[in-house]
Nucleic acid binder design. Structure first.
Length: 1055
RNA sequence: GGGCGAGUAGCUCAGUUGGCUAGAGCGUUCGCCUUACACGCGAAAUGUCGUGGGUUCGAGUCCCUCCUCGCCUACCA
């Protein structure tokens, strides 16, 4: 092997080591070993990254964490599967490709939509482009993960739209459809007018927006002799008992004022509502209002949904009561609450917008509803229409000649508005037909709730969703097995389900899993029976027969008599062509991306047809995967995914794997990691330019350094901050935090180099096992520290405490091993084969403990150490789990508890304390580092020091230890309550500095003594505190007083 | 409005069930190229633990009040 470089240079090793792992097939999981009982399973599913962009630092953190868990368990002997893959990310990817085309000066998807409308295959062509885009980014993401060292089972990599995943989607859709858990509904959806698709509730982001309350006046009218437009005057209102009507001119037309933030929807109003308890309600009962400009007359209705204004009994402090007028404009087609009012009162629903949210008379707002003057708004965008409505209202008054404008006032108002998480424009509540998944059904939502560990559930939730079959009674129950880390996220999960609404799963996109439903709804002229007859004729089989065979399922829910047919098998061309021959058409929409993501634990494992998955992938053991690895061990993900993804995977896994009872949750644990923010606590984002690219960090610091730093930052809080700096030399963002990891790697490299150098002097030999009790103090101490650290590491990993893991190995390696052990053994190791054996064993254990987080450097070093003979130390041996050819397949340290040596730790603690004290004296007395000094120690210490002397001499720069009194000048220090002296510190000592040092020490001691005295003189403490604590305090006081006396004596001697 | 998290050294963060003089890394100061490492070694300085109360012999830790920041969630009258 070539000599080791002076500093660790990651780029020299990382790609070679990666290739070594791949060649060794080290990351391949063998499910049959699990099924045969040879090994316990450990499985992690990667949260599939979107193929829309390269991975960012958050991904780096998430995947580092997963790799740490996976590598540790692989070394521990678990059969370990980390399943990689990517997500097709419907809207996001389609938008990216559209944008790319436009950036190239083309028309984007619009061009392909035209082609499709003209009978061409625009849809297919566009999907081809998206496919290319996906291939590009999938390759990039894969490369990034591999560069980071992620030990995924790369042969099994999946994509949410590949054949195997597609089969799962098809089957899942079919079963839910057949079971009545997927249905078609016409209702207001969250509509993204830019991408022109429906969105699920959780794809809508609330953003604060500066808007206004607009107060609009609607003139009151009534019907006389068939003319519904006769003005109602204030005088008439006064007669009817309308409060304060008399404050207006008697003969002028009266109005009601509505408050709105969205005046542009007023053309779609179909009523004005008032609370029946409102004192004005009776006066306006039976009256109508006439919508200005469009001239349409709409009724005034009464509904107690309307909030009373404070003036008329509304709750002061309630924002709505404060702002409202008591009259509510009702626009059922453009507001969810109004839609419900509309349903209650049988109101018309007038949609005034095109799918791009421009005002249109082609989608429900016809000429009749529009009136003569409404045309001015047509074609305007939402924003333009708002301005125009306000302008028009402002320019007019209720009736010609009356005072004041139709726009009574405008009040600035900041409120949050739903925006598309993809296009970032406000979503439009839009009436349309969509497919819904009935997640509120107990079989889905209820079982998701019941999946939680009972200790993490709230009482209310257990009451609302009791365990279907309490474990005590039924063995088969799989409730209560999923645990969140940190536990507080269980609450987020529960609350999400509490407020759940049915999930809109159709998207008006091209990139995605196309909905496998054919219908005749586009052809209402043809009778249903004729459709069915044609279909039977074409297929040559009776409908009932095919349905009973499970190949199709159908619903007939709509009043129009349309029938929706779901075809189970994508390859069932006979059925499909029969449907199409009969005049059925396939639904043009695709499924929400999360529908396929929700199936990830199933689809990646070959569900529903593992033998088909085997055939299409060529992976022989596909059929064993599901049984071996579902449920998986842990899902590692970010906060915002709890709702979007965790819940849905849980619902689907339990539903589809259920038989008599609900199936198992897809994972035992869910770990939610912190979110990385920049130094100012902001999200990292492209627009802010504060993002850090993991590959840049790997270039500058190495993959291990990045991984260690991220691991070390991963505390149990919800955010962590990473100060971002621009590296002037490269023009790239970086962070000084990563120096921590780089420095650690370099230290590890050099300590290893040093150890290897020692092994050239001290011969390593195999031999009979060493009894640790016969080892020297420092060796026993080091073995004890390794044992201690191993326990800490195991506990930390078990509880997903990644910072604790990082700190444990850092302290073990740097503080214990480098600072003390290596320094201590320098003078003795050359002559002690036993000590050399200990060093060999200890460094081996350290490399293993560090490997999960720093795989490249530890594997590189392992290559150098592995060939060296390793003499066994009793209780310290490591069982190889797969092969010693690579560290990552080798074993994990399992030191016996007996190696925890309290006596050695205590004794060495005294050595360290003495050494530190002497170093302090040296530093304050400005002793040159190379100068060897003399320690004068008699009495009790002398005996101990005799045993420790090589340690003290080496570590404290002492050339001799003597019981004699110093002859010339000397400095004094106190140790364990006695005074000792150091001499030969310098050619001439500075007595003043010596006095200062002693006086300062005296002051510190006095302060401590005063504090402890105070505590002991408090009778409450002595009486009530535990006896051992009081005893401890007394001992401490005694020690301090001895120290004080000794220091005092030294000071007096100084004269 | 509801929920959650954070506020500890100049910066980034630890601090498990209350109990030795509140810790680490970075940064700062001083001294060192001590035969692995200057990406290093030795030493030092730096804290009213957000505010104000309470419980307790004892509070960074438990309870209450308030302030600041962040996230999630519900509100587009």
């Amino acid at each position: 092997m070539p000599p080791m470089s002076k500093a660790y240079n990651p780029a020299d090793h990382e790609s070679r080591i990666w290739q070594k792992w791949i060649d060794a097939n080290a990351f391949h999981a063998n499910p049959d070993r699990v099924l045969n009982g040879e090994a316990r399973p450990y499985c992690v599913l990667i949260p599939p990254p979107n193929v829309t962009a390269a991975l960012h630092l958050g991904h780096a953190l998430n995947n580092s964490i997963q790799d740490i868990l996976v590598r540790a368990h692989r070394m521990m002997g678990y059969e370990t599967l980390w399943m990689p893959g990517t997500d097709h990310a419907g809207i996001a990817t389609q938008t990216m490709v559209d944008k790319r085309l436009k950036d190239q000066g083309k028309d984007g998807i619009a061009e392909y939509k035209r082609k499709e409308l003209d009978g061409g295959n625009g849809r297919e062509e566009f999907i081809g482009l998206v496919q290319d885009f996906k291939d590009e980014f999938e390759a990039r993401i894969t490369h990034q993960l591999q560069t980071m060292g992620c030990s995924c089972d790369w042969d099994r990599q999946r994509f949410t739209m590949d054949d195997i995943c597609a089969r799962a989607v098809r089957e899942a859709f079919f079963r839910l459809f057949k079971d009545g858990l997927i249905y078609r509904g016409k209702r207001l959806v969250n509509w993204d007018p830019v991408t022109q698709t429906a969105l699920a509730d959780d794809e809508v982001e609330m953003e604060e927006v500066d808007g206004h309350f607009y107060y609009l006046r609607y003139p009151l009218v009534k019907e006389i002799e068939g003319d519904p437009t006769i003005p109602v005057t204030w005088g008439e209102l006064a007669t009817r008992g309308y409060p304060e009507a008399e404050t207006h001119p008697e003969d002028e037309q009266a109005w009601v004022t509505v408050a709105t933030t969205r005046p542009e929807t007023y053309m779609g109003d179909t009523a004005v509502a008032v609370n029946p308890k409102d004192p004005r309600a009776g006066a306006v009962r039976g009256l109508h209002v006439m919508l200005p400009i469009v001239g349409r007359v709409i009724p005034i209705i009464e509904d107690d949904y309307v909030v009373l204004p404070v003036k008329y009994g509304g709750e002061p402090g309630d924002a709505k009561a404060e702002m409202s007028t008591g009259f509510l404009k009702v626009t059922p087609a453009h507001d969810p609450n109004d839609y419900m009012i509309g349903q209650r009162h049988n109101l018309d629903t007038i949609n005034i917008m095109a799918p791009d949210a421009s005002i249109s008379d082609q989608h429900g707002w016809d000429r009749e509803a529009r009136g003569e003057d409404g045309h001015v708004f047509i074609g305007k965008s939402r924003e333009e229409a708002r301005k125009l409505v306000i302008q028009e209202f402002n320019a007019r008054s209720v009736a010609e000649g009356s005072e004041g404008s139709l726009l009574e006032k405008m009040v600035p108002h900041r409120h949050s508005v739903g925006h598309s998480y993809r296009s970032h424009v406000p979503v439009e509540p839009y009436l349309s037909d969509q497919w819904y998944c009935k997640v509120t059904d107990d079989k889905l939502r209820g079982n998701a709730q019941r999946a939680l560990l009972p200790e993490q559930r709230t009482e209310q939730s257990i009451k609302d969703w009791p365990e279907s079959r309490p474990k005590m009674q039924t063995k088969g129950s799989t409730d209560g097995t999923m645990t969140f880390y940190p536990s507080r996220y269980a609450k987020t999960y529960e609350t999400w389900h509490d407020n759940l609404r049915d999930w809109c799963i159709s998207r008006q996109l091209w990139w995605g899993h196309r909905i496998p439903v054919w219908s005749n709804s586009h052809n209402p002229g043809k009778a249903l029976d004729d459709f069915l007859q044609d279909w039977e004729d074409s297929l040559g089989q009776a409908w009932e027969q095919v349905e009973d065979s499970g190949k199709i399922a159908a619903t007939e829910t709509l009043p129009e008599g349309a029938i929706f047919v779901c075809v189970r098998d994508e390859h069932d061309t006979a059925i499909v062509s029969a449907l199409e021959n009969a005049g059925f058409r396939r639904d043009p929409d695709v499924l929400d991306t999360w529908f396929s993501s929700a199936l990830w634990p199933l689809s990646t494992m070959g569900w529903p047809d593992a033998s088909a998955a085997k055939d299409s992938s060529g992976i022989e053991d596909f059929e064993s995967l599901l049984a071996a690895f579902n449920p998986t061990s842990v899902l590692t993900t970010a906060r915002e995914i709890i709702t979007l993804w965790v819940s849905r995977m849980t619902m689907f896994n339990r539903y589809f794997l259920g038989e008599e009872h609900a199936g198992k949750a897809p994972f035992k644990d869910v770990f939610i990691h912190a979110m990385i923010q920049d130094g100012e606590g902001r999200k990292m984002s492209k627009t802010l330019g504060n993002g850090v690219d993991p590959l840049d960090i790997i270039d500058s610091h190495g993959a291990d350094a990045m991984r260690f730093t991220l691991c070390q930052m991963t505390t149990q809080t919800q955010d962590v901050r990473m100060p971002v700096e621009l590296d002037e030399s490269t023009g790239k963002n970086t962070s000084p935090k990563f120096d921590l990891g780089r420095n650690l790697c370099n230290k590890l490299w050099n300590a290893s180099k040093f150890a290897l150098g020692m092994f050239e002097k001290a011969e390593l030999k195999a031999g009979i096992p060493i009894n640790p009790e016969e080892l020297s103090l420092i060796d026993r101490w080091m073995l004890s520290r390794v044992t201690h650290a191993t326990n800490k590491v195991n506990t930390a990993l078990r509880n997903y405490m990644f910072k604790d893991y990082a700190d444990a190995i850092y302290d073990l390696f740097w503080r214990d091993f480098c600072d003390w052990y290596l320094e201590s053994i320098k003078p003795t190791i050359a002559d002690s084969p036993e000590q050399a054996a200990v060093l060999r064993n200890v460094i081996d254990a350290i490399l293993r403990l560090m490997h999960p987080v720093m795989p490249f450097i530890t594997e590189t070093l392992f290559e150098r150490f592995e060939p060296l003979p390793m003499r066994e130390i009793e209780g310290f041996s490591i069982e190889v789990t797969q092969s010693n050819a690579t560290l990552c397949q080798s074993g994990w340290p399992t030191p016996a508890d007996e190696l925890r040596d309290e006596v050695a730790e205590e004794a060495y603690e005294r050595v360290r304390s003495l050494v530190t004290t002497i170093r302090e004296v040296r530093a304050t007395a400005q002793v040159k580092p190379k100068r060897q000094i003399v320690l004068h120690a008699g009495g009790e210490l002398a005996a101990d020091i005799a045993r420790w002397s090589p340690l003290v001499e080496t570590l404290a720069g002492v050339e001799a230890i003597t019981a004699d009194e110093p002859e010339g000048q000397s400095a004094s220090f106190t140790f364990e309550g006695s005074e000792y002296r150091l001499s030969n510190l310098a050619d001439a000592l500075d007595a003043g500095a010596e006095r200062d040092r002693l006086e300062k020490e005296l002051a510190t001691l006095e302060k401590s003594i005063a504090g402890i005295n105070g505590r002991l003189s408090n009778p409450g403490y002595v009486d009530k505190a535990p006896a051992h604590l009081v005893e401890q305090t007394r001992a401490q006081l005694a020690q301090l007083e001895k120290d004080h006396a000794a220091t005092q004596a030294a000071l007096e001697k100084l004269g």
